[in-house]
Design a protein around this nucleic acid. Structure first.
Length: 291
DNA sequence: CACTTGACCTGTCCGC
DNA sequence: TGCGGACAGGTCAAGT
């Protein structure tokens, strides 16, 4: 599921919904989804208050008054949905079926926030996880030590963007842009969308990309992900925000999952290929391999 | 080190 | 309808 815009959308929702709330209880049916010592949970999670919600790359952090943090990765199908059962949505409301039926069989962790409200960590494929660790140790986990810069930060320049790719010069641009140690937060949807925007074929070697093309790609990555945040992210399959609502970026997508439809720029039929081991969508006329 | 491939899971869709 | 295989928004640990 979630790439940077989706995780950012969940973060913004949780900030509104759970800051200052107290965690009364936490239960999980799957140790891989919530691999924490029972002792840590009872000492540092139960009765803790949420002080902040942050994001780094595709990782969410829920900071607690105990100086511990819930670090969460949604991977492909994770959801974090807050439900106030004291104000259930009536039949016909857009959130009726999504939210009123939680928990369901994909619910891996349930946090009880009191007053009949719960935060559900749902994850159909069980790739995601929630870990409780001291806040001060969050920057020391392997993922945080390796992850590259945030592409949407105001002070992140095209020159810095271009420079980050030199470490992956012998691989393809699609593999490199998906590599979280190069740039944080870009996944399969926004890789395809931004490469189309910059007219770069995903299978081209990084070493063949010119500075002008990198500059264009930098602009497209930021443009596409900022637009997606504005639209509440992409719901390709499972993704919903903290209120259980879908994002609408897919209505604005130009190539992703649009094989057989005309390229919005030149009208050529969009095709689906395999690049970096991932399904990849391109305009074969705009994005030339031999360039 | 840089790079590629398979593994981790469940569910859905598509062709026979 | 049923069944097998491919595939799905992401990382990792292995292998070369």
């Amino acid at each position: 599921m979630p790439e940077l815009p989706e995780v950012e959308t969940v973060k913004r929702g949780l900030r509104r919904l759970i800051i200052d709330r107290k965690i009364i209880a936490a239960v999980s049916d799957n140790p891989k989804s919530f691999p924490n010592a029972a002792r840590d949970v009872s000492q540092f999670l139960i009765n803790a208050t949420v002080t902040d919600v942050r994001r780094r790359a595709k990782v969410l952090m829920i900071d607690l008054s105990t100086k511990y943090t819930l670090v969460i990765h949604l991977k492909m199908t994770g959801q974090l949905v807050f439900v106030d059962h004291g104000a259930r949505f009536g039949a016909g409301h857009p959130n009726d079926s999504l939210v009123n039926n939680l928990p369901d069989k994909s619910t891996r962790v349930t946090f009880d926030l009191g007053n009949k409200s719960h935060l559900y960590f749902n994850d159909q494929r069980k790739f995601g996880w929630v870990r409780l660790i001291p806040t001060a140790e969050v920057p020391n986990i392997d993922f945080m030590k390796r992850v590259g810069p945030e592409p949407l930060e105001a002070d992140f320049t095209a020159e810095q963007f271009t420079e980050r790719f030199t470490r992956r010069s012998r691989t393809t641009i699609k593999a490199a842009i998906l590599d979280q140690s190069v740039i944080a937060g870009v996944g399969n949807i926004y890789a395809d969308e931004s490469l189309w925007g910059a007219k770069i074929h995903p299978s081209r070697l990084v070493g063949s990309i010119t500075d002008a093309e990198f500059k264009l790609l930098y602009t497209e990555v930021r443009k596409v992900m900022n637009l997606s945040i504005e639209k509440g992210g992409s719901t390709n399959r499972n993704y919903v925000n903290a209120e259980g609502k879908k994002g609408s970026y897919m209505d604005f997508a130009r190539v992703f999952r649009r094989e057989g439809l005309p390229c919005p720029r030149c009208g050529t039929e969009i095709i689906k290929i395999r690049a970096a081991g991932r399904g990849t969508h391109i305009c074969p006329a705009c994005q030339l391999i031999g360039k």
